[in-house]
Design a protein around this nucleic acid. Structure first.
Lengths: 335, 335
DNA sequence: TTGAAAGCGATACCAA
DNA sequence: TTGGTATCGCTTTCAA
């Protein structure tokens, strides 16, 4: 492997100059810089990240902690983070908490605290007080996307308002029997999404003088399969069908749409459906939804941290990302 | 941040001993090891990966290059890789080529070659000769999952046989008008999946004396939305409908199922559908498929590289992962 | 503008 | 079993 000395030798300058030249620092003559660049290129030299990381204290890598990869929201936020990091020549280290309990501590200790990253983005992760202290002691700026953690800045949306707006859309169309398909609260993850969205739904109902019924309330895991099961079950048991359904996520909304079709009913003729996300497939399903742009949220979170690392901002503050209703074919007035 | 010297001081031994004790190396008395561990724990000491990386030449991180995150196959392979890495205390660095052309070279140069990783797993990435040479020059073991690249070992399935088996399943049920929904070849990615699966389909047809018809041949992007569109289009135009459909991926198969339902037809009554993957949602859709277990493939690829890094094997060899048919409700004899 | 040399924080060899 | 010390490859003063 070629090192910096090889380049220095090849271009007849010191390693100090090579370092300066290659990183675009000032006070290097154009001629020298050209010579060094050429030599480096010919030798295929690329600086070792361990070495420069050790010397500068910067790893040029950012960590992203995720609960898993199989929810559209997570993978889309990651892609957003990635695009921002790429633009800044940062690498992305993926810490997947996926499943197994207990691994969390190992991931945390062994990896996150190992100074392998300059900053950390956590998706829907609810750090314990202890974890937060350890994070703080590393001095790494940290931000949470999709939920709040006491003491940490976050990028989020107004969960409550989003759900309220979705529900109000249904109410505005004239629906009164509106079913609720909520997500489940998972230990170790933030609970804002589930809690606040339920609140938004309830507020909208209350404001309209409507009473949510227990037999029209379901829970799912934010994914399609569980939602399809839940909705199928609801349709099979309830004597009086809902005329509309609000779901905490588009994946659940689409699962419910499938269940409705499975039951020989039609969307929106028999039941209107609205979700939150604007999932890639929402358009294909003709799903009306509240768009929350996770890609943008991820990119934003990354940029906030990069700004702090670059000294362009002092301490990262929380940012609220706007949402907007997208009307498609899955919602209509009740027949 | 606490360094190794702090621990050394606190436990009254040299840094050399601290290093040995903490890494579980032999020739450290139990008493000393205990004392050091305690001190390290109390001080919250975690070794800097840059420093130990520089000293040992090992980063304890593996790179994974992916075309994107929004295909189930990719994210599932990544989760498999991740689980194997976690078991070995390795970190996962994600190189997402996602979209933009041109970024590829930057990702390649700036990141992959920066010695930030000890080894590399590429998903369906078709390296150019040049890229391969550069990779080789780093000395990092590399493996490809989902396709072949000349000169590199791979983990793959018998694409041709998988598609043949799927098609034969349909033929065995008595179908003769079997539509083909293939994936698209993408520049920069391996083409085995698309090419070999088409070959498998054609072989099965030929073996049965059947002639594939042009008007029953479609292409999609391996995802649900494009498949739904393609199938909708086919159903609307073709005078004589197919009685069965083979799709290159489950996501496309499910998209086609939706299109069939959209058209007021039924699966499998009007059209049988089979895919390849065994996607998470396949069961919910009742989709008959050829399971290829990407999670296992990812974990296997990671383990092969870890074995090579650990000196337990010399040079990583290619491995073929088995597939198997899973019969569900989407296939039946033609009416 | 350039170079010499002192770190950065661990590891690993050689002595003790 | 332990400690001293050179070393990993690059960055960064400080002088020249």
């Amino acid at each position: 492997m070629t090192g910096i000395d090889d380049v220095a030798r090849a271009s007849g300058v010191s390693t100090a100059t090579v370092s300066r030249a290659l990183r675009g620092l000032p006070n290097v003559s154009d001629a020298t810089r050209a010579r060094v660049s050429l030599a480096a290129h010919e030798l295929g030299y690329v600086a070792s990240s361990s070495a420069s990381g050790l010397a500068t204290g910067r790893t040029l890598a950012m960590g992203v902690v995720v609960p898993s990869l199989d929810l559209w929201f997570y993978s889309t936020v990651i892609e957003g983070v990635d695009s921002a990091l790429r633009a800044a020549s940062y690498d992305l280290i993926l810490f997947n908490l996926g499943g197994r309990r207990g691994d969390r501590e190992r991931v945390f200790h062994r990896s996150i605290l190992r100074k392998r990253t300059d900053a950390l983005i956590a998706l829907c992760i609810d750090f314990t007080e202890d974890e937060r202290k350890q994070l703080a002691s590393t001095g790494h700026p940290t931000i949470v996307v999709g939920g709040k953690v006491r003491g940490l800045p976050h990028v989020d949306i107004d969960e409550c308002a989003a759900a309220r707006q979705a529900t109000e859309h249904l109410i505005g169309l004239g629906h009164t029997r509106i079913a609720h398909l909520g997500g489940t609260v998972i230990e170790g993850l933030t609970r804002e999404v589930t809690d606040q969205r339920r609140r938004g739904y309830l507020e909208a109902m209350a404001n309209a003088g409507l009473t949510p019924r227990d037999e029209l309330t379901m829970a799912g895991d934010f994914d399609m399969a569980s939602a399809r099961r839940a909705m199928t079950e609801l349709l099979s048991r309830s004597s009086e069908r809902p005329t509309a359904l609000y779901a905490d996520s588009d994946e659940m909304a689409m699962g419910a749409m499938l269940a409705i079709t499975d039951a020989g009913l039609r969307v929106p003729d028999d039941i209107s459906v609205i979700g939150i996300d604007d999932h890639d497939l929402a358009e294909s399903f003709g799903l009306t939804t509240i768009a929350q742009e996770p890609f943008a949220q991820g990119a934003l979170a990354a940029r906030l941290l990069l700004d702090e690392l670059g000294g362009r901002t002092s301490r990262t503050r929380s940012v609220r990302h706007p949402v907007h209703l997208i009307e498609r074919a899955s919602t209509a007035p009740p027949r």
